[in-house]
């Protein structure tokens, strides 16, 4: 192998990566298509799941890949949701793609600004700072009711037809297809980001920030940059939620939403993009089903699920599946 020409190795590596991306996108698209066919009357829930997936993917970037402890990540989701909603309801910017762009920019700005505070702490103090940030954001949204609608929520969001052709119908088809398209694009972009030298630097920081600093890499600035990217992703999720539901509530930037996102990430597996997707899908779907079946004890059942996952699949569902696959392959060979 070492005698192989450099160009040949590079080409093979590039092909393998592109093929990996293709299969990853195909898998996500296949699952989305299957869910569309199996649950055609539940498209609103599926769209909500995709919006939350973007939040959890964003959280994975800062927590799973970069090692930042945060319980305030909904701040970025809420920033995107409120920005897109306010621009639509107050300034008449109703083009859905423009609303998504506004959400992404607002999320990125919120990510960059809040990271300046959150990254000052480490470990527990970092967690406390992140909780303080989300609490402040929540309170600010509550007080600025003239803009945000306060506790009543921001309403009056009426997105125009997608590409001027597809109206956001009552059954949620347009929103669902837009959400799937958005998720696929974000997923591919994030796969490129996390395997780039920048992504590797973030993973290096997670493992040994002292060593990375000694190598001359700017740890703080790198994490701020990752936070801004994560903010854009969460902001997209928030804007998608605003477009799909046509309302933005205070819960979009609450501590509870932040904590749930962390739980979903742990359920799926941290530091794995598929983990964020699987964790969100399983958690939200399970939560929705269980609460419908047993409205009195559904939280207990959710609690049992979480304990089961953490005890028996500490690397998350995707981590457990990977271990199982590795074991099967090991036996075969």
């Amino acid at each position: 192998m070492s005698d192989m020409p450099v160009n040949s190795v590079t080409t093979r590596s590039w092909q393998r990566t592109a093929l990996g991306d293709f299969w990853a996108v195909a898998a996500v698209a296949l699952v989305a298509g299957a869910l569309f066919l199996l649950f055609p009357t539940n498209l609103a829930l599926l769209t909500r799941i995709i919006a939350v997936m973007l939040l959890v993917l964003s959280l994975d970037l800062v927590t799973g890949f970069s090692g930042v402890a945060t319980l305030g990540h909904a701040t970025l989701f809420g920033a995107g949701a409120y920005a897109a909603g306010i621009f639509a309801a107050r300034f008449g910017v109703t083009d859905p793609l423009l609303m998504l762009a506004i959400g992404a920019v607002a999320g990125a700005l919120a990510g960059a600004v809040t990271s300046l505070v959150i990254l000052r702490g480490h470990g527990l103090s970092q967690l406390v700072l992140s909780i303080a940030v989300v609490s402040l954001a929540h309170e600010a949204a509550n007080k600025l009711s003239a803009w945000t609608g306060g506790s009543d929520g921001l309403s009056g969001i009426a997105p125009s037809p997608l590409f001027g052709l597809f109206r956001f119908d009552l059954f949620g088809r347009t929103a669902f297809f837009m959400a799937v398209g958005l998720l696929l694009v974000v997923f591919v972009v994030l796969r490129i980001v996390v395997r780039s030298p920048f992504g590797m630097l973030c993973r290096g920081i997670k493992q040994d920030p002292v060593r990375v600093r000694a190598m001359g890499a700017p740890v703080y600035f790198t994490l701020v940059k990752m936070y801004a990217i994560a903010g854009a992703v969460a902001g997209l999720g928030g804007a998608l939620s605003a477009i799909a539901t046509k309302v933005v509530g205070l819960d979009s930037l609450s501590f509870t939403t932040s904590a749930e996102a962390l739980v979903m990430l742990v359920v799926g597996g941290t530091g794995k993009l598929f983990g964020a997707l699987v964790g969100t899908l399983v958690f939200v779907w399970f939560e929705d089903r269980v609460s419908a079946i047993n409205p009195f004890h559904w939280l207990t059942i959710i609690g049992v699920l979480l304990i089961g996952v953490v005890l028996f699949a500490p690397k998350g569902l995707v981590g457990a599946a990977e271990s199982l696959w590795a074991r099967v392959r090991g036996r075969r060979s």
């Binding site: 993973r203 493992q207 190598m215």
Partner: peptide, 26 residues
């Protein structure tokens, strides 16, 4: 040695690029 144990060899090298192109790993 302080290598990053949960990264692959290539990923470890990517961390050390300091803005250089990935082809420098060769």
């Amino acid at each position: 040695r302080a290598i990053f144990k949960s990264l692959t060899v290539e990923e470890n090298l990517q961390v050390g690029l300091k803005g250089r192109a990935e082809s420098a790993i060769e």
